[in-house]
Design a protein around this nucleic acid. Sequence first.
DNA 1: GGTCATGTTTGATCTAAATCAAGGAAAAAT
DNA 2: ATTTTTCCTTGATTTAGATCAAACATGACC
Lengths: 244, 244
Amino acid sequence: MTIELSARVTCTDCPIRHRAVCAYCTGDELDVLEQLKSYKTFKAGEPILWRADKLTYVGSLVHGVATLSKTLEDGRTQMVGLLLPSDFIGRPGRSEIEFDVVAVTDVTLCCFQIKPFEALIASTPHVAQRLVEMALDELDVAREWMLLLGRKTAREKIATFVQMLVQRQHIAGTDLPGQALSLPLTQEQIANYLGLTLETVSRQLGIMKKNGILRFSDRRHFEVIDFPALQLATGDDSDGGVLV
Amino acid sequence: MTIELSARVTCTDCPIRHRAVCAYCTGDELDVLEQLKSYKTFKAGEPILWRADKLTYVGSLVHGVATLSKTLEDGRTQMVGLLLPSDFIGRPGRSEIEFDVVAVTDVTLCCFQIKPFEALIASTPHVAQRLVEMALDELDVAREWMLLLGRKTAREKIATFVQMLVQRQHIAGTDLPGQALSLPLTQEQIANYLGLTLETVSRQLGIMKKNGILRFSDRRHFEVIDFPALQLATGDDSDGGVLV
DNA sequence: GGTCATGTTTGATCTAAATCAAGGAAAAAT
DNA sequence: ATTTTTCCTTGATTTAGATCAAACATGACC
């Protein structure tokens, strides 16, 4: 069930202001968005959008974590995206999506009705421009993941996944060994992201713990002890990727 | 080596006019494009863009087939896209790409220098709008492929691949059994697209021939004899997908 | 604080697809 | 026409990861 948040935050104070779809907007343009937006929240585990739903709104993830996934008839599922704050949900120009969006943690969304939003794109080049950029960035990430799914070993997949978490959470200037990072997914969800089974994920993470690459303080928090070894285990060349 | 084509085709007569990035352009807008465009051709096997290249132009594929692929240090490669006529190559707003683009057959590209093209996007909402649409369509295809790479069996992968070829080549109103379809890729290239080895591709295609699902007239041309069986073998639910 | 549900670990076994290894068949080149 | 190269097929063997099967943590909730 979704709840309309009463506590509105102004766009100027928004935590995702500089990375979201509104990144290039001027003060005037933000004023327009301000009038159109509304917040929705979802509890951990709740569906945000269902494959069969008609799309009536689009929005930016403000806090929390959500997943995009696709499922075959017999139940096999594959995650096709991990949504973190500032990521955009929705499909302007089309009323259907072909995957399910589910809240993993509690989630807050900054929403727009799809019709006014589409009008906004047409009239606000800054939004259209940012949207192209974000779509192309997502495309890069999807393609990087295709390489992972098609060609990497279980060990490389896990290492790449952990590296991506590091890159998206690491606070520059802070020592990496010692910095607590959060693991928002269960091992089953990780398996669905990496095209593996949960047993394989457990075993590979176990090996990385034993090898002194990772240390877990509890199920959902860990730190990277040996970053070079992690990097090496990804199978990528050392200049990093686009999963940031 | 690239060659500038002397035989210019006017945009209005262009075979990909209605599906390419210029799809929504008015006559006036086409006149502008007409001045900016130039054709480049590539021989089968030639690289069109290399991962390390600075991007100096973008363009639409007019005829031929090209592949996008990514390669790991040790040589494992994964195709991340198959470019057919009307597909767009390039990355407005960024000067680098993270994959290689190679001509599979002889290829003709309708090219624009990247700088004027970016200016065009800013000034021509119709181009920006179509570009968002095309990027999001590609994203859908990439995600469909993630499901294939992560969760489908070899047989399902081959069936899905063939089904995609059918959907992109089938002429509506023509009988499917009997219609000659072209297979532009070698089995090794198919393997790289599907995250398999060439031996597995050969064996699975062999089985589909023996089962009377496919018939090959030569290495590069086939027809689908039993479409329902093909559909069934994809593992998808029957309502089709986005790979069109 | 004990019960329960949800995640995680670990072991034994199986299997789909990879790998290794030749041949053969079609195109391309000379 | 004949050589060469590129593709394709087929068989034998191996293996990474799936599957099957229990226990074991951990935190959530009365």
